[in-house]
Design a binder for these strands. Structure first.
Length: 411
DNA sequence: AATCCACAGGAAGTGCTGGGCG
DNA sequence: CGCCCAGCACTTCCTGTGGATT
């Protein structure tokens, strides 16, 4: 105690802080009854307001119960409309009814966005794990097909966020998977493709497109009332009674309803708000906690993505930022490249080509940090006009974490 | 109506990493 | 060990283009 107190400049202040922290902590174990109920991976026992979609999907894949291959399904819906939850839920229920001969593989294509990784996951789903690198894709393909054929039965493949796979690696794996059944006799493959981007279908080979879209399911966004209802039900399990102030759930629902009815966001806000309340030792979660959570969610998202960017992406972003700060109107690719080259000179790294910067600008646009749209300025050429559409403060904070950039940001 | 700017963005290739196979 | 593979970040070279200006 003495050591602790004398080590700190403020005498026994640290002791007071610790005391309060521990007291609060002990007192506030009472907010969460079961925190994991609010985590995004959690699939609840009931999925309210998605009964219709559950039924439709179940009808489509029910043929596996009689041992025949169900049609391929394509599921479309905005983020947080319950696509993944419904799919997992229906598959889980199905597996309870089926004795043998059915295998499922769930692949998140954002995490496994290359042909090789998708095939590797499929291979391990049929019980033939392969090294995560080193083999040729045709080799993995062979092993997967061979093992599947020997096992027999039906394999249901869920390709979640399938647009990521197509955008990064093309549709060759999809093409292979939609035609694999012609080579199999003892087993069959059915695909459930899940996405929130309908436009990506246009890039598909027409044969893949028609095969994948044998059945289609659309998930509408949740409305305000439905979101509230979902939050209430989850809260009953997640929290002790009475810890949420009156307006908390409606506020979370309202914010999320504005964001295309994103239920994941609603749950995340509630979770973060309760975390904040607990951390500061409040006995109840208030609307103010929700608003703080909203700001934090937005901020963290930007800071984290910026922080993890490669150097030249950061430099590009910094170039855009400083052009914006100099009140340049209608920032173009050429202007960004010039500024970027200048920044590279100042910290002594060699610049990449303008072609590459053009791609980086597109990447930043896809991340939603900037907005880049192609415009034609007639005589003055054709270029992209770029705007920052997120908090400049948060971007800057992400950039500041990079020591390479410290000399550029000091003043 | 023709021109021509300032890029967009496709194709193909390079060098590197991190691994496998026989 | 030597050779092969996929993925990535990037380059080089290239053709294409919307529309204000001539």
């Amino acid at each position: 105690m003495g050591i602790l107190a004398s080590a700190s400049t403020g005498g026994e202040v640290i002791v007071d802080i610790l005391d309060r922290l521990f007291e609060n902590y002990a007192k506030n174990v009472r907010i969460f009854k079961k925190r994991e109920i609010l985590l995004p991976e959690y699939v609840p026992e009931e999925l309210p307001h998605r009964e219709e979609q559950i039924l439709q999907l179940a009808k489509i894949i029910a043929p596996v119960l009689r041992g025949s291959k169900p049609p391929n399904v394509f599921i479309y819906g905005l983020t947080g409309t319950g696509k993944t939850a419904v799919t997992k839920y229906v598959l889980r229920r199905l597996l309870l009814k089926v004795k043998s001969g059915v295998l499922t593989a769930y692949i998140n294509c954002r995490k496994s966005s290359t042909n090789y990784r998708v095939l590797a996951e499929l291979a391990s789903a049929v019980g033939r794990p392969v090294p995560f690198t080193g083999l040729s894709t045709t080799e993995v393909l062979k092993r997967f097909t061979y093992t599947l054929e020997n096992r027999g039965g039906i394999l249901l493949i869920v390709l979640d966020e399938i647009d990521w796979l197509v955008k990064r690696s093309g549709d060759s794996v999809l093409y292979f998977l939609t035609r694999i059944n012609e080579e199999l006799s003892r087993s069959k493959v059915a695909i459930i493709g899940v996405t929130n981007d309908l436009k990506f279908m246009e890039y598909l080979d027409p044969r893949v497109k028609s095969s994948l879209g044998e059945e289609e399911l659309v998930f509408p966004p949740y409305n305000n009332r439905e979101l509230e209802d979902i939050l209430r039900r989850r809260s009953e399990e997640a929290f002790y009674p009475g810890v949420l102030e009156e307006g908390v759930i409606p506020l979370c629902a309202a914010i999320a309803a504005k964001q295309n009815g994103d239920c994941r966001l609603a749950l995340d806000l509630l979770l973060k708000a309760a975390d904040l309340a607990e951390r500061e030792g409040a006995s109840k979660v208030s609307e103010e906690h929700v608003r703080m959570a909203q700001r934090e969610v937005e901020r963290n998202l930007i800071v984290d993505t910026v922080k993890s960017m490669p150097l030249h992406v950061k430099l590009t972003l910094l170039a855009i930022l400083s052009l914006e700060k100099n009140r340049v109107k209608n920032i173009t690719t050429g202007e960004i490249y010039e500024k970027y080259r200048n920044l590279c000179n100042r910290i002594g790294v060699s610049a990449v080509s303008q072609r590459r910067i053009s791609d980086i600008i597109n990447e930043l646009d896809m991340l939603g940090i900037i907005n880049a749209r192609v415009v034609s300025l007639g005589r003055y050429g054709r270029t992209k006009v770029i705007k920052i559409v997120t908090s400049e403060e948060s971007i800057l904070e992400g950039l500041r974490r990079d020591i390479n950039l410290s000399s550029l940001l000091s003043k």
